[in-house]
Amino acid sequence: MIKDRIAALVLVGVGVFAWIEAQRYGPMSRLFPQVVAVALVVLSLFLFASSFSARSRRAAAERQAESSEGERPDVRGVLLSLLVIVAWTLLLEVLGVWTSSVIAFVALVIILRSTERAAVVWRSVALGVVLVTGFVLLFRVVLRVPLPEGVLW
């Protein structure tokens, strides 16, 4: 509910910004984005307003109950994985697709493991390296898609 309100305000901002930015464009290229921007603002304001209604409060409470039933989500895992994924993307061109993917793969396996049995973890790493190598070869050699090479491979 509070989330709805934040999202609605952010989207109102996006819409207003889009409208103002489009002022600079010619009549033909301004029309469509401005119409859409107005729609976005109106709909977001509606969402904002309706988040105060009793019905939406009830729905939010229900959803809360629903989500708390299950297991606690792995917030640490998600945040760390996100970090790895962002780093992976940034390093793609620097290190090359193979190297960066293998490193990220290992990092994710370590973050996501729930067992301490090394053999299992090793198996994941080995499988990952084989899959990455296989796909990189498939793309580079067979399909001739020039994946980023970077300094390494």
């Binding site: 090359g96 190297t99 293998v102 049995r117 973890v121």
Partner: peptide
């Protein structure tokens, strides 16, 4: 496991450097 992980990283870095 930690040792194994570290070892894996080290090996990968070495292999990566060789390939590079």
């Amino acid at each position: 496991f930690r040792r194994a992980g570290r070892l894996a990283c080290a090996m990968l870095v070495v292999v990566g450097m060789l390939v590079g």
